[in-house]
Write a protein that binds this DNA or RNA. Structure first.
Lengths: 143, 143
DNA sequence: AGAACATCGTGAAGTCACTACACAATGTAT
DNA sequence: ATACATTGTGTAGTGACTTCACGATGTTCT
């Protein structure tokens, strides 16, 4: 059947992964960020201030590492620690003004990049892309 | 309003990247490998025995790191160091039997996974996927 | 109330992937 | 023969991330 195309599409997905991962890291590095740090900023941006424990779940890393991440981000001025209103063990992490601006800038750049890269692509192609991507994301057994 | 679809496709690409990267790492970890180690094995598999310097270019990492990688892979039995026929400074890295088997197994699994995941997808959708992926990748692919 | 236990964040220490620098051995050019 | 380039590796360091132990606080149970 279309085995060749199937394989080509499969390989292309890996190529895409490599390439996009690289692009993303470069873009973030330019702003002094790494992927997990950006994840923190995004999490705070659209979930609001959060406790570190919650962030560690969102990033799927240890609470200890979140401490380090927040140390780093707060030193760089993106976030700030504050007291939790009811639980005095917890600290509430909030985006600073600079953090909010960074988040918004990244959102705008996402839109700009999407338009630049895919603006001319016909809609049905995009939908096919999404459909195939969902195949990857959907069914899978790691065994 | 293909803008929405454009953004959706863009975001989907990132989702795909995250997901596939994870899948790949899990699959490799099961065999005691990491991404760069697997790259070494593949490079040797379809380029034949190579000098470390060459591998460092293929992996775009420092020669020093290749040394560490090969130390590791050779300890695990996947590759072996041998003398270079003409240049006595260089060592020639070769796949062991176990290394060859690992490479072949991974190739087979790639085919199996491709079939499982994308086997039922119509060819024109796959082609659209590839076309869109190429938009991301742009004008350049190394290798 | 007090004892027992769970939870939040962090210090200390370690692993792992990776880098920069220095260097000995070898190859190449003049 | 001298000078320089190149191959691989030791030493040392960074950065992301983990496990373990602990003090401070919150919760529950009698």
């Amino acid at each position: 059947m279309s085995d060749d195309t199937t394989l080509a599409a499969f390989d292309k997905a890996f190529e895409l992964v490599t390439h996009v991962a690289e692009l993303m890291q470069e873009a973030l590095a330019q702003r002094g960020l790494t992927t997990p740090k950006a994840q923190v900023i995004f999490a705070l941006h659209h979930e609001g201030p959060q406790v570190q424990r919650k962030l560690s779940e969102a990033l799927r890393c240890t609470p200890r590492h979140v401490t380090a991440l927040i140390d780093n981000l707060s030193e760089a001025g993106f976030v700030a620690r504050g007291p939790h209103p009811t639980d005095r063990r917890a600290t509430l992490v909030t985006l600073t003004q600079q953090g909010v601006e960074a988040a918004e800038r990244m959102v705008r750049e996402r839109e700009k990049s999407a338009e630049e890269l895919l603006g001319e692509v016909p809609e049905d192609q995009l939908k096919a892309f999404i459909a195939v991507a969902d195949r990857f994301i959907g069914g899978q057994s790691d065994e």
